[in-house]
Amino acid sequence: MRTKKRRIKKTLGEHIFITVNGIFLSLFFVIALYPIIYVLSASVSDPVAVSSGKMFLWPVGFNVDGYEQVLRYKDIWSGYANTIFYTVVGTILNLVATIPAAYALSRKDLEGRNFIMTLFIITMYFSGGLIPTYLNMSGFGLVNTRWSLLLSGLVGTYNLIVARTFFANNIPMELQEAAYLDGATTFQLLLKVVLPLSAPIIVVMALYYGVGHWNQYFQAMIYLRDRELYPLQVILKEILTQSQLSATGLEGFTAAEIEEMLRMSETADRMKYCIIVVSMAPMLAIYPWLQKYFAKGVMVGSVKG
């Protein structure tokens, strides 16, 4: 009798737990997803319905006029092209600099390994700061060139550590020694033995660096002056911060003028929503497919060593 009672009590507690947990997680799910859905819906809705709050989840008055406007906006396409260039070339340079270095540092027979590693780790906590870094870039004559974006952040210490840990733990030393016995040079060893076994870490590195380049704004704002070099994010910033109509400061305009201004600001808002969609779509479409890789990357990185 007593044991039975305890059993029932336990399941009740379990039920409460599952319900509360379910509510919490659903709330979390909704909060994470809602802003993204809202932007998607707003980009294809009637702008008046959006600004009046009639549209709050699914599109109201479906149309794609906003996207047609965006298509005609030339700066966005040059920005897009630049961003693709910075992302592709930048990520390749990142990988070429990071992967071989990480491999070399994973080798226990490398003299001075600890010293070199310390050099890198120090850069995680100390830097020259904004102005000295800017002056340095300017001293090399790289300000207002594409190189400023490609070279800044060429090797991320965190990424280097992640890749090094991966090599140290996943490539058996016996395999490497066997390759040497077969007469392979170290470069051949890296290219033909180590890299084919390292696909997960290369994908992780490419993703980390790639996302960084795709979303890069601050460096571009600091270093670039010419519009034709601007990546998408700088163009986006210009468009997104174009002033919103404020309720105050409208005295002195006729009702018709105010209505016209309101209409214009509403269509401008719709265009903003479209631009947001256009810029975030590639990343949001790619990352779910790479999920298992980046979870792995974080896991490797969290192993101290």
Binding site: F28, A32, P35, Y38, G53, Y217, L240, I276, M280, Q291
Partner: peptide, 30 residues
């Protein structure tokens, strides 16, 4: 749930801040 929870991380700072400004607008923000 995990996949959805990662999505905001992939949105750029410029876009995220743009969204914040639009969502909090006193006249039309949701």
């Amino acid at each position: 749930l995990q996949t959805v929870s990662y999505a905001p991380h992939f949105i750029s700072m410029v876009v995220m801040c743009g969204m914040v400004v639009m969502f909090t607008s006193p006249s039309s923000g949701i």
